[in-house]
């Protein structure tokens, strides 16, 4: 018997001597993602947008001496030129610089709003799914009620209240983030709850209970990480829709207000027929930015979903 055991150990050790790479789940996902060209294209566009938005304004300021508020009185509503690659707006501000700032704001809105909704959604979904029964019933009916709220009119109303209270334009954007975040956690909560409902019946949760863990630890350390795949996917896709909501709000003049730029607000000038017809440089670039970013996020999110799906074998 002992000899058999020794041989067995030797066998395992021999295999180990080859020093195979341990494939962590994330490595597998990265590997799969890299093979999805569309998703990678989305990722690169997104990274490009982020890099340009973060570092672009710094370069513009310190290299070319242009800030988003600087007015070039000699070039008001000027078409693209060497000095202003994307032209200037009706008060003579450089469109490219404002576009970069707008990118910062739009992306921040997307990320912060989604972070808020992910935190709320996973906590509520986790609790609801773990406890089940009455707790679950109450929370889910609450979610149902929340989902019945017409999202956009409510957003408009809240934004209108904000303008009435004369909130400083500088801080308004934060309110917009919070509002979008608070209004969009319900979908995620449902996804998380559904998964946890089935996960908590798994044997490893019984094992976790037999280890003497507290409920809180069981929910947030053991169950939620198992739902990360769907949280990540839904968060990624959520960033896109948060950016769209912000754009729409700003377009209607209720989100970010001048002098602070955002993409949606920049498109607003296209409501003027003259601008729409002759001054294309004012509204096409921000429109393209919104389109590209949201599309990139959606492509990447879809790719991520495919990569994270363990049932998908190629």
């Amino acid at each position: 018997m002992a000899e058999v055991k020794n041989n067995l150990n030797k066998g395992v050790e021999l295999k180990g001597a080859k020093k195979e790479d341990i494939m962590s789940p994330w490595k597998i996902v990265r590997h799969r993602l890299r093979r999805n060209k569309l998703a990678m294209a989305g990722l690169y566009i997104l990274l490009f947008m982020i890099v340009v938005s973060v570092f672009g304004p710094i370069v513009q300021k310190y290299v070319f001496g242009i800030t988003m508020e600087k007015i070039d009185l000699y070039n008001i509503s000027a078409p693209p030129s060497l000095k202003h690659p994307l032209g200037t707006d009706e008060v003579g501000r450089d469109i490219l610089t404002r576009l970069m700032y707008g990118g910062r704001i739009s992306l921040t809105v997307g990320i912060v709003a989604v972070s808020i909704s992910v935190v709320i959604g996973s906590i509520i979904g986790g609790i609801s799914g773990y406890y089940g029964g009455v707790v679950d019933g109450i929370i889910m009916r609450f979610v149902d009620i929340f989902m019945c709220f017409p999202f956009f009119p409510l957003l408009l109303m809240l934004a209108a209240v904000l303008s009435d209270y004369k909130v400083d334009p500088k801080y308004r954007i934060y309110f917009v983030m919070v509002i979008i975040g608070i209004l969009s956690w319900t979908g995620l909560a449902r996804i998380v709850r559904g998964q946890i409902l089935s996960l908590r019946e798994q044997e490893f949760m019984q094992a976790a209970e037999a280890l003497g863990l507290r409920d809180r630890r069981k929910i947030f350390r053991h169950l939620l990480p198992n739902t990360f795949a769907s949280i990540i996917v839904s968060a990624t896709l959520g960033i896109g829709s948060a950016i769209l909501s912000e754009s729409a709000l700003s377009y209607l003049g209720l989100g970010v207000t001048p002098p602070y730029p955002s993409w949606g607000q920049m498109v607003q000038v296209a409501t003027d027929y003259y601008v729409m017809k002759y001054e294309y440089w004012k509204w096409i670039p921000p429109g393209v930015c919104i389109f590209l970013t949201v599309m990139a996020i959606n492509l990447f999110g879809d790719g991520l979903r495919d990569a994270l799906d363990p049932k998908l074998k190629r």
Partner: peptide, 18 residues
């Protein structure tokens, strides 16, 4: 639980958190 009395479950395949 897990300290003075601990449990080994039947299904090693599913008793560890993946």
């Amino acid at each position: 639980r897990g300290n003075k009395i601990s449990v080994i479950f039947q299904e090693p395949m599913t008793s560890l958190n993946p």
